[in-house]
Computed example of a mutant assay.
Amino acid sequence: MKLTVPTMLTLLRIVLIPVLVLVFYLPYKWTNFAAAFIFALASITDWLDGWIARRYNQYSAFGAFLDPVADKLMVATALVIIVQGHHTVWMALWAAVIIGREIAVSALREWMAELGQRARVAVANVGKIKTVVQMVALLCLLYSVTPDSQARADIWLGEQIFRIGDWLLAAAALLTLWSGFEYLRVAWPVLRDDVRS
């Protein structure tokens, strides 16, 4: 199997996951910057691998499989460590909604692929907006949340950045529900017909 540049960028995103966790829990004042930087770098590689694949026609079946897996792993990991650092009911609820939707949509896509209807559940515009809002929210929260639930008083505008991230995560969760409903709405006629047969 030949590794393309987009696939190597996707693999880098997976390698960055344990690095993100390790850096988040280091007992230094600069770790919030480092954790946010690592997540930002992973987000940029997510955009960049797709752009390179389209621009230079470097598609591969392995890359197509690995890219969404890497995205979901990075987002789920970020959500888990943020909830551990700021364990409130609302933060846990938003995280559960986002992770649960990712699992449900992945299962739906697999089911549709088995029925030969995968193209019907392609990424919609609301899903792309959700992704942007979610990435910005997680970036803000990784910058402003600590592993021990203590506020970072030494961070410039840390509390305001946390509030922005908190509200954006709630918006991302609502967009997640909306996009999940859209996926289900498009797939429902095929699923209904398959159940009847």
Rank of each mutant, 00 (worst) to 15 (best):
A151N: 01
V121N: 02
S60T: 15
E159S: 10
M8H: 12
G158R: 11
R54A: 07
D166P: 02
V75K: 08
D67S: 09
A170T: 07
V97W: 00
A107M: 13
A76H: 08
M74C: 15
Q160G: 13
N125E: 00
L139M: 14
S144Y: 02
W51I: 13
Q150A: 13
T10M: 08
T88F: 09
D154A: 09
V83S: 01
V69D: 14
I38M: 11
T146A: 14
V75W: 03
L3H: 13
E114M: 09
A119G: 00
M112C: 02
L66Q: 10
S197V: 06
Q150V: 14
I52W: 00
W156P: 04
F181Y: 11
L93M: 06
E182H: 13
A42N: 15
W47K: 05
R101D: 00
T10G: 10
T45Q: 11
I103E: 08
V190P: 00
W47H: 08
G180M: 04
R185T: 05
T176E: 02
H87V: 00
L9Y: 13
S179K: 01
Q160R: 12
A78P: 07
Q84P: 00
A61S: 15
I81F: 12
G180D: 04
P18V: 11
L142A: 05
Y56C: 03
I155F: 01
S179P: 00
L142C: 11
R120A: 10
A122C: 02
V145H: 06
A170M: 05
T77F: 10
V89F: 14
Q134D: 03
E114W: 02
I44S: 14
E110Q: 12
L3A: 14
